[in-house]
Simulated assay, not measured.
Amino acid sequence: MKRRHFLAAAVLAALPGIALAHGPSRQKVTLTADVAADPAAVWEAIGNFQDMSWHPAVFSTEGTGGNDIDATRHLVLGQEGGPTIDEVLYKYDAAKMTYSYRITDVLVEVLPVTNYSSHLTVKPRAEGGSTVEWRGAFYRGYPNNDPPPELNDEAAVAAVTGVYQAGLDALVERFGAP
């Protein structure tokens, strides 16, 4: 009986330490942009998983599998020989103008995230034109407690927000604001 009480006391004593050592929480970013073009025109520009030339940070895209599930793409950022991101498509619906993908390989120095997934969707606006929604979920680049500033939650959210905003701004510039 004493042993059972001792074990119970040991477990209770450890609980505060367990609560403090939970690690990172999943972060989420959702950004939208309204553009003057109709959804079909916007989808024509961004709906091909193999072509991300519409994003100003992407120097080149190459991949396999087209828009089929498990298709892959390799992005080169900035310039020839620049940093890279590898991604895989896991959901694609041309009729609903949406696709979802995951990053399979990126250095945290390039994008300070892990376990990143994202969804890109084009929707019609009641007033005409389109709304492009880009949302993602991810963990910070440093999986343990006490991350360095460049790999913490704030850095991860800021980096993903910057990527999304640059892409959406390019679409507004290309298609015009409503």
Rank of each mutant, 00 (worst) to 15 (best):
D38Y: 02
L31R: 15
I85C: 01
L31V: 07
A126D: 15
T98E: 10
V88M: 08
N145P: 04
I69Q: 05
D38P: 05
T98M: 06
Y139F: 14
H55I: 09
S117M: 01
E44Y: 09
L75D: 11
L31D: 11
E127C: 05
A156E: 03
P83W: 04
F49Y: 12
A33V: 13
T72A: 09
P112W: 05
G129L: 00
P24M: 00
V76Q: 10
V29W: 07
T121G: 04
L77C: 10
L31E: 15
N144R: 14
D146K: 11
D70V: 02
A36D: 07
N48S: 09
P143Q: 11
Y139H: 15
L107N: 13
I46C: 07
N145D: 15
A137F: 00
D146T: 13
G23P: 01
R73P: 04
A45R: 13
A156S: 12
V110S: 04
G167N: 14
P39M: 06
P149Y: 08
H74R: 12
T64V: 12
V110M: 07
T30R: 15
P112Q: 04
V35A: 06
I69W: 03
T121I: 08
E154V: 14
Q27G: 14
V108Q: 12
Q79P: 00
A41S: 15
D153P: 10
T72K: 09
S60R: 07
G78R: 06
Y142P: 08
T64F: 08
G136E: 10
I46G: 04
D93A: 00
P148H: 09
D93M: 05
F49A: 02
A166P: 00
V106A: 03
A155S: 15
H22N: 06
P147T: 10
N152Q: 15
G82E: 11
A71C: 13
E133R: 14
